[in-house]
Simulated assay, not measured.
Amino acid sequence: MDDSARMWITTVPPLHPDDVEVVLALDHASQDPGERMTSVLLNRGHEGEEGVFYFLASDLSARYERTADRLSVSVTAPRHLLARELPVLPETLREELSELPGGASDHDRVTLLSRAIATDFVPAEQDGEKQPVLLMGSVGPASLTELFSRFEKGEADIAVLNAE
């Protein structure tokens, strides 16, 4: 699936039906190494509201970048955290992860996911903090409607990532 089918600017009815959010799809069964590692790292979060997981910015974080009419979002993790998790991962995934690029502004972080869409949406800021990015994860690719349906059935999860 291309980025525009895996990133949305929308309201999220299960959370705050009036707030506009940036949502990224995450396929827990993906063969993409960054997506697979993101799924592994999701186990390090702690649950807030039912089904919503929060993370330390030092573990997983998102970064917004605007170029002309495109909004890009990258999800990054620190290299040292990946190194700690690598010994328990399959060898092929370890090799693929070692080849992932560093973060644009911080080479001690690895870019696990990157999505972009054409939009005029500008993420809100409050007290100098950009609004979080939501990761909606499930097994297999899904449209936004399908992700919401899976979430209601308990077959999808939502993770809230701090954003830069």
Score class of each variant (00 low, 15 high):
residue 51 G to H: 04
residue 51 G to P: 02
residue 51 G to A: 04
residue 51 G to Y: 02
residue 52 V to Y: 09
residue 52 V to I: 09
residue 52 V to T: 10
residue 53 F to V: 13
residue 53 F to Y: 12
residue 53 F to T: 14
residue 53 F to A: 10
residue 53 F to R: 14
residue 54 Y to C: 14
residue 54 Y to H: 15
residue 55 F to C: 00
residue 55 F to G: 03
residue 55 F to A: 08
residue 56 L to W: 14
residue 57 A to Q: 15
residue 57 A to S: 15
residue 58 S to T: 10
residue 59 D to I: 09
residue 59 D to C: 12
residue 60 L to W: 01
residue 61 S to Y: 05
residue 62 A to S: 14
residue 62 A to R: 03
residue 64 Y to A: 06
residue 64 Y to R: 05
residue 65 E to L: 08
residue 65 E to A: 14
residue 65 E to C: 07
residue 66 R to V: 05
residue 66 R to I: 05
residue 66 R to D: 02
residue 66 R to P: 03
residue 69 D to V: 07
residue 69 D to S: 14
residue 70 R to V: 10
residue 70 R to H: 13
residue 71 L to M: 05
residue 72 S to C: 08
residue 72 S to I: 01
residue 72 S to T: 08
residue 74 S to P: 10
residue 75 V to H: 02
residue 75 V to Q: 05
residue 77 A to P: 01
residue 77 A to C: 04
residue 77 A to K: 00
residue 77 A to L: 02
residue 78 P to E: 12
residue 79 R to S: 02
residue 79 R to F: 02
residue 80 H to I: 07
residue 80 H to V: 08
residue 81 L to I: 11
residue 81 L to G: 08
residue 82 L to P: 00
residue 82 L to K: 03
residue 82 L to I: 11
residue 82 L to H: 01
residue 82 L to A: 00
residue 83 A to R: 14
residue 84 R to Y: 12
residue 85 E to S: 08
residue 85 E to N: 01
residue 85 E to I: 00
residue 86 L to E: 04
residue 87 P to A: 03
residue 88 V to E: 09
residue 88 V to G: 13
residue 88 V to P: 01
residue 88 V to Q: 11
residue 89 L to E: 02
residue 89 L to F: 01
residue 90 P to F: 05
residue 90 P to L: 10
